[in-house]
Design a protein around this nucleic acid. Structure first.
Lengths: 99, 99
DNA sequence: TTTGATAGTTACACAAAGGTAACTACTTTA
DNA sequence: TAAAGTAGTTACCTTTGTGTAACTATCAAA
């Protein structure tokens, strides 16, 4: 648990993972999809998630540059858990806002 | 997700919840069962978990005083999720240490 | 009267996480 | 020559979480 929380236990990382659950996304897309996140936190969260093997970063050497982020297998394995958490939240708060 | 993480996203709260999964415990027992936690953090975590309706605090006016902590229904509903997280951890790190 | 047990609280400090705003680098387009 | 687009970085600051050590309150027993 301690280690799991070391990986996930921040404000934004679970949101980033959940956002990537069914799509790949570019840096700017994540910045737009996730409201209120700062680019700085997005950068550092993505870097740490990559180091932890949760997401994959693919750099395309085009112009303008393009970078795509996707979940790894290990990252995808977290999705059902996060869905359960979202469900728990809905069930016990029941205000319709879970993300 | 943001709110769920606001409740669980600290170093010790998931450990406390997991420790209470199948038992009630007194303050001093939790302090002994959970290695390395400080009484201060235990106090504040228990207080916040109580405010969030995850645990129940029962005070017995005896001498010496006795206080028992148990999970509420809402708290118990988190247990399967935390077990899945522990399983995820074991699966992808596979060193046998999950708590 | 001092010790022991229980369940904390208080003061202080440190480190990590998060926020804001300005800046960088590269190249194409106007 | 200047703006626009992409993907960041950097400096600075505030907030939150955690840690240590000492202290509190109450009563019983020695």
């Amino acid at each position: 648990m301690q280690r799991s929380m070391g990986i996930l236990g921040t404000r934004w990382k679970p949101i980033i993972i959940y956002t990537l659950r069914d799509r790949k996304a570019r840096f700017g897309q994540l910045d737009a999809l996730i409201e209120n996140i700062s680019r700085k936190v997005l950068t550092s969260s993505l870097k740490e998630l990559e180091e932890d093997g949760i997401i994959l970063r693919e750099e395309f050497k085009e112009l303008p540059p393009r970078v795509e982020y996707t979940l790894t297998q290990k990252g995808k394995a977290l999705i059902p858990i996060m869905c359960q958490l979202a469900k728990w939240n809905e069930e016990y708060y029941a205000d319709g806002i879970s993300m």
